[in-house]
Amino acid sequence: MPETPYRSPLLHRHGAVAASGPDEGIAWHYGDPTAEQRALARGTAVSDMSHLGVVTVSGPDRLTWLHSITSAYLEGLPPHESRELFVLSPQGHIEHWAGLVDDGTTTWLLTEPDHAATLTQWLTRMKFMMQVDITDATEQWAAVGTPNATEGAPDEPITWRDPWPHTLEGGTRYGLADHEHPGMHRPWRLQLIPRDTLVAHISEHEQAGRRLVGTWATEALRVEAWRPRLATEIDHRSIPHELDWLRTAVHLHKGCYRGQETIARVHNLGRPPRRLVMIHLDGSGHLLPEPGAEVRVGDKPVGAITTVARHHELGPIALAVVKRNVAEDAEFLVDCDGGAVSGGQEVIVPSGGVSADRPHARGETSRDARGQNNLSNTMGRFL
Rank of each mutant, 00 (worst) to 15 (best):
H115I: 01
L192F: 00
L119S: 11
P5T: 06
G352H: 07
P60L: 08
G303W: 13
A117N: 06
I305R: 04
R173I: 06
V213E: 03
L110V: 14
H280E: 12
L230G: 05
I94F: 08
I317S: 09
E24R: 00
E180Q: 15
V250H: 03
V54G: 14
R310M: 11
P154M: 04
L333H: 15
V321T: 15
A217H: 04
P78Y: 04
G170E: 09
L85Q: 12
N377R: 13
G315D: 07
G259S: 08
A19Y: 03
G183I: 03
T70Y: 00
E331W: 03
W122R: 01
Q37W: 01
P182W: 12
K323D: 15
L77R: 02
Q260T: 03
A208Q: 15
H286I: 05
T120Y: 06
Q207G: 12
P228W: 07
A39K: 06
A16P: 00
D61V: 03
Q37R: 05
R211F: 01
A361Q: 13
R210L: 02
I94Y: 06
R189L: 04
G209S: 09
E151G: 04
P157Y: 11
L198H: 05
H360I: 05
V349R: 15
L375S: 06
R358G: 08
S366Q: 06
G99T: 13
V250I: 04
E290C: 05
G92W: 07
H166R: 09
V87E: 14
T197K: 13
S238N: 10
V347R: 00
L198S: 15
T111W: 12
T365H: 08
V341E: 04
A98V: 08
V250C: 06
L85V: 09
L85R: 03
R362M: 11
P2T: 09
R227S: 11
T262V: 06
D23Y: 02
E95F: 03
G363W: 08
